[in-house]
């Protein structure tokens, strides 16, 4: 009559290289929680209590093994002054960046985690989730990485252009974004969450290996080094295609890499002995319209991932779509929980 482990226990073991029964099953259930809970996205993104309630409702429904505090990748940029547009049924979107002229960088102020933008929403949600379930479920706080925040401050295209035409200004912006991320991560930790850095714009779909190495990697490394002072395991999530930079991921110091459109075998052979992998069922497989069966698709991911030397978390490549088909997600989670280490 051996006891069943709870998610917190299973994650705890994974993080010290122990592989007792199976990997944690943690699809990135974020804004989809609002659909489960039945609230609109404006409240989900701007009210910590609702975000927390929705996360708990979704976790009760699906039984996945971690709570996710995430609204959008503009979070920190907004707290520093960029204007975002909140919408009822879609995630917030950048309306007007704060740095329209590079000369405005000098006036940029670091955010106050307790008061700027929607940062307090995150902290409140973390507090609530931690209080409710912190003993059995890890709480992950998704924090936009510096490269992505800088793009939100400057405007995405302008920032990408700056990396070539105004590299110094880009670095200045990145420094500030880094400081803001450190400040915010510190508070998330105090509230009880593990930071998960999200860097969708540092994707190999958007920037070259060189740009990644010069503008994204050093700041992610500094951020992660700071977080390592707390002996915390840090997850880095990069959307899209990452085959051109996968070997650099271990240089950021990330303990876990959440991968999207990258074959898990490639990730495994490149960094699998140093980095735990989190991934990577393509989110669109969870849509009702997707013709392929979950079984067919997750087969390769789970079978390969589970053999990763440094460990594996059964997850999705990116956020579970807001309007995913619940039965498909349930199916994936069930298959995930049936997986076993060899």
């Amino acid at each position: 009559m051996a006891g069943e482990m709870n998610p917190r226990e299973r994650w705890g073991l994974l993080l010290i290289d122990e592989f007792p029964d199976r990997p944690p099953v943690y699809p990135l259930v974020t804004s989809h929680a609002s659909a489960v809970y039945g609230c609109d996205l404006i409240s989900y993104c701007s009210d910590g209590k609702i975000l927390a309630e929705a996360q708990l409702a979704a976790q009760r429904k699906y039984g996945h093994e971690g709570l996710s505090v995430f609204t959008d990748v503009g979070l920190i940029a907004e707290a520093m002054g960029s204007k975002y547009h909140l919408r009822e049924f879609e995630v917030p979107i950048l309306n007007r960046p704060i740095i329209e002229e590079l000369s405005a960088i000098d006036k940029l102020k670091l955010p106050d985690p307790g008061g700027s933008g929607r940062l307090p929403v995150y902290l409140e949600a973390i507090e609530k989730l931690y209080q409710a379930k912190g003993d059995v479920l890890p709480v992950f706080a998704f924090v936009p990485a510096p490269f992505t925040t800088a793009a939100g401050l400057r405007g995405i295209e302008d920032f990408l252009v700056d990396t070539i035409t105004e590299p110094e200004a880009a670095h200045q912006l990145l420094e500030l974004s880094l400081e803001a991320a450190i400040k915010f991560c510190d508070e998330c930790i105090l509230c009880g969450a593990l930071p998960m850095l999200v860097d969708p714009l540092a994707s190999g779909s958007v920037i070259s290996r060189r740009t990644f190495a010069e503008f994204a990697l050093p700041y992610n490394r500094k951020l992660i080094t700071h977080l390592h002072r707390y002996d915390l395991d840090v997850t880095l999530h990069i959307c899209g295609e990452t085959s051109s930079i996968v070997d650099l991921i271990s240089d950021t110091g990330a303990d876990l890499f959440s991968l999207d459109k990258l074959d898990i075998d490639i990730a495994r052979s490149s960094i699998g002995d140093k980095v735990r992998l989190v991934g990577n069922l393509a989110p669109h497989n969870l849509m009702a319209s997707s013709g392929v069966s979950i079984e067919d698709n997750c087969h390769h991911i789970i079978d390969s991932g589970i053999r990763n030397k440094k460990g594996f978390v059964i997850s999705t490549g990116c956020e579970v779509p807001i309007r995913c088909q619940p039965e498909k997600l349930q199916k994936y989670i069930k298959l995930g929980k049936e997986a076993r280490y060899e």
Binding site: E157, I207, S208
Partner: peptide, 14 residues
Amino acid sequence: CKDYFVPEVLVSAR
């Protein structure tokens, strides 16, 4: 052929 990425294309365009 992935020699250029989005930033390079944008700068060339400008």
